[in-house]
Design a protein around this nucleic acid. Structure first.
Lengths: 211, 211
DNA sequence: TGGCTCAAATAAATGCTATTATATGCTCAA
DNA sequence: TTGAGCATATAATAGCATTTATTTGAGCCA
C-alpha cells in the first residue's frame, strides 16, 4: 500500500481495485475490509477508500482487547506490569530528552496534585493529575511508540479505577515523590529519577497484586 | 465471539453465520475476513471458520509492521528504545520470579557466549547466544505479554543485524557483563542486576543511534 | 467371518466470480 | 444556503472452483 499517501486522501475505490488487480468486487471488498479492521483504511460512501494512518495510540487501542484476551484471567496484572516496565524502562530517555517546557509542566502538575490531595484527598481529580504526570514523563522520552502504548494502558487503568474505586491506591508519599521526581528530571539526574520512580511504582504494583 | 472454544476448534461456518445473524453470505464473509485480519479466525476449506488464539508473540508479529509504518523513518530507533525499555523495566520482575532452572540456563548461556566469542569473536552464533540470553531474562518475568513482545522485537533486530552486519555491536565487556548479570539474578540482587543490565544496554542503544 | 487397509467417490465448506439492488453522503448548480 | 443528482460504498443473490473431510466398498489376512 502506497505509504506516501497522506491520511484522509483517497487511496482507491473498490472498482479501481477490481480493475487494477483483476479480482471480483467481493474479493476487493474483503481485502479492504481486512485493511479497515487493521485501521489502515476507511470506506467512505461516494468518496472511496480513504487512507488512515493510525498512530501508536490508535494501534494500541485496537490491539489491547486482543492482548487482554490472549492473557485471560491474568490480563490485568500482566498489563499493569507492562505499564510499569514501560515507565521504569523509559525514565532514562525521558531525563535525557525532556524539554524545559516539559519539565516546567511536570512541576506544575506535581504542584496541582499536591493542592488537590491536600484539599480533597485521593479523588478523581487527583487521579487525573497523576495520570497526566506519568503520561508527560513518557512523552518526554520523545518516543511516540512507547508514549502511545503507555497512554492507552494508563487510560485503561484510569477508567478501571473509576469503575472499581477499591482499586484506587492511596499512597501517602505520592505528593512528595511526584515533586522529587519532577526535580530529579529537571536536574537531569537519571539515577535519582529512576530510583524515585521505582519506589513510587513499586507501591502501585504491589497493591494491584491483590486484585 | 465465544472465548471458551479452543484453538483449532470450528467456530462456525459461513452459512451458520448467515442463518444465525440473518445477513447475506457476502456480509458473513466480510465479517470473517476482518476477524482473520486480526488473527482470531482462520478459514479452512471444507472445514469452516476455525478459532485461532494468537498469543502475545503472534499479536506483536501482526502489528509490528503497523507500528513501524506509523513511525516512518524513525521506526528502527523507536523500536530499539521500546526493546530497551522492556528489558530494563522488567529486570525487577525477572529477578523476583526467576526459577532455579532458569537461572541455571542463564549461566549456561553466558558460559556458551564466552566460549564462542573467545574462539570466534562476535559471530552469528554469538549473536544467537546473546538473543537467547536476553529473551530468557524476559521469560523469567513470568509475563507472557512482555516476553512475547520482546521476543518479536529481538528477533526483528537479530534478523536486521544479519542483513546489516555493520549494525552488529561489538562490546568488549559483553562476556563479563553477561556472567555478572546471571550471577546477580541468581543472587536475587535487583539493584545490581538492573545496573549491570543498564550498562550493558546503554552501549547497544548508543551504537544504534548511528544507524 | 470379522477386522483392517486403502483407493475412489462423495460431500461439506471455503474461496471466488459475476451481477443487481439499495444506501449513503459528497458535489455543485441554482 | 439548499437540495437534486450522482459516485461509490454496502449488501444481496446465484453460481462455480477448490480444498479436504468423510463415506464407501473392494481386497486382504488372521
Amino acid at each position: 500500500m502506497d505509504s506516501n499517501l497522506a491520511k484522509g486522501e483517497v487511496f482507491m475505490t473498490v472498482d479501481q481495485i477490481v480493475v487494477e488487480y483483476g479480482v471480483s468486487r467481493t474479493i476487493a471488498r474483503e481485502a479492504s475490509s481486512q485493511l479497515q479492521a487493521l485501521g489502515l483504511l476507511k470506506g467512505r460512501q461516494r468518496v472511496g477508500l480513504v487512507m488512515h494512518r493510525p498512530d501508536a495510540q490508535d494501534l494500541m487501542k485496537n490491539w489491547l482487547p486482543l492482548y487482554a484476551r490472549s492473557l485471560g484471567g491474568e490480563s490485568v496484572q500482566a498489563l499493569a506490569q507492562l505499564r510499569y516496565a514501560l515507565e521504569l524502562g523509559t525514565i532514562g530517555l525521558a531525563v535525557a530528552n525532556a524539554t524545559e517546557d516539559q519539565t516546567s509542566r511536570l512541576k506544575e502538575i506535581a504542584a496541582r496534585f499536591e493542592a488537590v490531595t491536600s484539599a480533597q484527598g485521593q479523588t478523581e481529580e487527583a487521579d487525573s493529575a497523576e495520570l497526566e504526570f506519568h503520561c508527560l514523563i513518557l512523552e518526554m522520552s520523545g518516543n511516540p511508540l512507547i508514549s502511545g502504548m503507555h497512554a492507552v494502558l494508563s487510560d485503561y487503568f484510569h477508567v478501571a479505577v473509576q469503575k472499581n474505586p477499591n482499586w484506587r491506591k492511596v499512597s501517602p508519599d505520592a505528593v512528595w515523590e511526584h515533586k522529587a521526581i519532577a526535580k530529579a528530571i529537571a536536574a537531569r539526574d537519571v539515577e535519582l529519577a529512576r530510583n524515585l520512580l521505582r519506589h513510587h511504582l513499586d507501591n502501585s504494583l504491589s497493591e494491584l497484586k491483590g486484585c
